[in-house]
């Protein structure tokens, strides 16, 4: 019997392996004002459907990024925890990947991102159940976008249909566009040449996207060891997003 090559199967995330990563993000919770501009920008860029009030109250809304906040204490000593934008962490060791029976949740060796391959997905939702960050969303229905709202669709992004899991792609279409342009001009992609939809919209500049493998990049220059942390670090998922604490 042929031995299974996990690399070939795209299940490389199953093997614990430290790596530097290629694309990464820094989110400064001290600056995030919770204004939701990133949520709207992401939805517009990525053809995300709106689900309506009923499905939204079942927790079926499809945003790829959400702003979390929790309460601490009671009035008048009540405090809201810092706004926390939560999106796919693009873990190096992603828990969603090994559980997919059809290899729709796979790791991209070229970009070091977690992918969701829509045409493979059969909707088992195992990946969503195994994601410690709960950032995967499922299309419970074919959500209608009545004419002429469909004119706004971004042609660079697949429109998903019912029964498919989806999640943040780090705006892979923008990565490809930038890489393609750079290649055409015979150079490397420059840091800051392009950014994700959420980072581009963010009025407070709380989200910075860029290259992790370039020590001169903004995401690397910004790192503040005393404030930086990663979500659920202890799980060993090796996320590609670093959060900065308030203060």
């Amino acid at each position: 019997m042929k031995p299974i090559d996990l690399n070939e199967m795209g299940a490389i995330g199953a093997i614990a392996q430290e790596a530097e990563g290629k694309w990464g993000m820094v989110i400064d919770q001290d600056l995030c004002t919770g204004c939701q501009a990133c949520v709207a920008a992401c939805s517009m860029e990525n053809n995300i459907a709106f689900v309506g009030e009923e499905d939204a109250s079942y927790g079926r809304s499809l945003q790829w990024i959400r702003i979390e906040r929790f309460w601490e204490g009671e009035y008048p000593e009540v405090k809201m925890t810092p706004f926390q934008p939560m999106l796919c962490q693009h873990c190096h060791n992603a828990p969603c990947e090994p559980v997919c029976p059809v290899f729709a949740a796979v790791h991209s060796p070229a970009e070091d991102l977690n992918l969701q391959v829509y045409n493979r997905c059969v909707g088992t939702r195992y990946c969503a159940n195994n994601c410690p960050y709960q950032v995967r969303v499922f299309n419970w229905r074919d959500y209608e976008r009545p004419e002429p709202l469909n004119n706004q669709f971004n042609p660079d992004v697949t429109v998903r249909r019912r029964g498919i899991m989806e999640k943040c792609t780090f705006c892979l279409q923008r990565i490809h566009r930038a890489e393609d342009l750079a290649k055409a001009e015979g150079r490397e992609v420059r840091d800051g040449e392009f950014t994700t939809a959420c980072a581009q919209a963010c009025p407070a500049d709380a989200i910075i996207f860029g290259r992790l493998d370039d020590p001169e990049s903004r995401v690397n220059q910004l790192s503040k060891p005393d404030r930086g942390y990663q979500m659920l670090e202890e799980l060993g998922t090796v996320p590609r997003i670093t959060y900065f604490k308030e203060g």
Partner: peptide, 20 residues
Amino acid sequence: VNQGKTCARGQATLHGLYNP
């Protein structure tokens, strides 16, 4: 005014343009 940034309403202005 905004130096390259927008709010959520600015992003959703397209849903006014293509409003059914």
